[in-house]
């Protein structure tokens, strides 16, 4: 299957999807957040059976998070095997909620837990959004752009006094 053919097919099935082809056989799809599950299951049925990554971008000036799904294929017989599909959905920063893709891709669980911990995005349908990496609790999730990491480390780690000073 050709890339352009695949793109046409996606456009025919799903309206208001903005797609473009980038370098090295990459297809970028900008979708609404309600559409994500449908498009992902459509792509999975079309041979893109491997979810390589879920990641998150904080666009603080636009007041939005962008959730990025990267799909590849294990099929080896045609052009699809060399294609990456990059699917982007924007969600609001005030109420960051999106449907979990666990029913389609099981390996999404840990990516979603990581994003929940570091960005505070809630994935509806994932029941194991428990702490993964961090030991301490932070008021603002630490990967958000408005978390001032320099000030935090200054206020917190420098407030622990050396033992020699504490005796005085």
């Amino acid at each position: 299957m050709n890339i352009n053919k695949l793109q046409e097919e996606i456009r025919n099935v799903f309206k208001n999807v903005v797609s473009k082809v980038g370098k090295d056989n990459r297809i970028f799809l900008n979708v609404q957040k309600e559409q994500t599950l449908n498009i992902l299951s459509f792509l999975k049925n079309n041979g893109f059976d491997h979810l390589a990554l879920i990641s998150c971008v904080d666009w603080i000036k636009e007041n939005q998070f962008e959730i990025v799904y990267i799909l590849t294929s294990y099929l080896l017989d045609d052009e699809r095997s060399k294609t990456h599909i990059i699917l982007k959905a924007k969600i609001s920063r005030k109420n960051p909620e999106i449907m979990s893709v666990l029913p389609i891709f099981e390996n999404a669980e840990f990516y979603e837990r990581e994003i929940h911990e570091l960005f505070g995005v809630v994935f509806n349908g994932n029941n194991r959004l428990i702490p993964l990496f961090l030991y301490r609790k932070y008021e603002i999730p630490p990967f958000r752009k408005d978390f001032d990491t320099r000030e935090y480390s200054k206020n917190f780690y420098d407030s622990v006094l050396p033992v020699e000073d504490r005796e005085k």
């Binding site: 961090l134 630490p142 990491t149 480390s153 420098d158 050396p162």
Partner: peptide
């Protein structure tokens, strides 16, 4: 003293505050 992680949110900077 933290090295290149001197302003990290998750790295303690001075180890000698916690063990000798």
């Amino acid at each position: 003293n933290g090295g290149m992680y001197w302003d990290s949110y998750n790295t303690i900077k001075h180890l000698d505050k916690y063990i000798p």
